[in-house]
Design a protein around this nucleic acid. Structure first.
Length: 221
DNA sequence: CGGGTTTGACCCGCGC
DNA sequence: GCGCGGGTCAAACCCG
């Protein structure tokens, strides 16, 4: 098995660990030490070093059960999961993607996760939206460098939070990807970034990095 | 001057 | 039907 294949396998093993755990923030305990690809929805972004705060995995179609009535269970859909290691501490953050899932929170009780019951209601009511993908980061800066160029188009103070939510659009022509950035109400050190849509282009800079990660991308897509 | 940010107004979906 | 609140628009502003 090639080293990259082994890396790929270890990533998925790690992903399984995350999935079978409680959704949210998880202790970081992995031996991943080589550089890893950071992936967009179906686009490579850039290759990051082991010290990078961002690692993204993809293509896991089923989330295992956690509790009977609170089962975020997806099957056969092109979901993404994201694993993210905080640069400031040893934690993994999780992210998930679905075709119509809302990250709406109620009274701060839901962190990033949304109960299955709520998701079913949302899914039944909402029309199909662009794929969404979100994750938490412990970071001083709100906007992480993900290789793409963004333009801010709005800011909003959301209820029950003291920190405003910022709205960004990809500056590339014809690319409709958006992202929202906000800080967690009960832990302002945590930044929640939500991406919506798929990039139709490569990252706007770091040619070498995107080239390097393109090789690794084949293991995920 | 061009590109990005700010910010108040507006739109619209959702819950009651 | 109405009000609330999240998301978007767009004019004004800022900055290199």
């Amino acid at each position: 098995m090639s080293s990259q294949a082994m890396l790929n396998q270890s990533l998925f093993e790690e992903q399984e660990m995350i999935i079978s755990s409680q959704l949210g923030i998880f202790p970081f305990h992995t031996n991943l030490s080589s550089s890893l690809p950071l992936l967009g929805f179906n686009q490579p972004l850039k290759t990051l070093s082991a010290d990078s705060p961002l690692i993204t995995l993809s293509d896991h179609s089923t989330l295992t059960k956690q509790k009977e009535d609170f089962t975020p269970h997806f099957s056969g859909l092109p979901h993404l999961l994201s694993l993210q290691r905080s640069a400031a501490s040893n934690y993994w953050a999780w992210g998930e993607l679905s075709d119509c899932m809302s990250m709406k929170r109620s009274g701060g009780e839901d962190h990033l996760g949304v109960s299955a019951m709520k998701m079913k209601k949302i899914k039944a009511r909402r029309k199909v939206r662009e794929p969404r993908f979100c994750f938490k980061t412990m970071s001083d800066v709100d906007v992480l460098d993900d290789g793409y160029k963004w333009r801010k188009y709005g800011q909003k103070v959301v209820k029950n939070t003291q920190h405003p939510r910022s709205y960004y659009r990809c500056t590339q022509d014809n690319c409709r990807v958006k992202k929202r950035v906000e800080r967690l109400a009960d832990d302002p050190r945590m930044v929640i970034t939500t991406y919506e849509g798929r990039h139709i282009h490569s990252p706007s800079h770091d040619e070498d990095d995107s080239q390097a990660s393109a090789q690794l991308t084949n293991f995920f897509w």
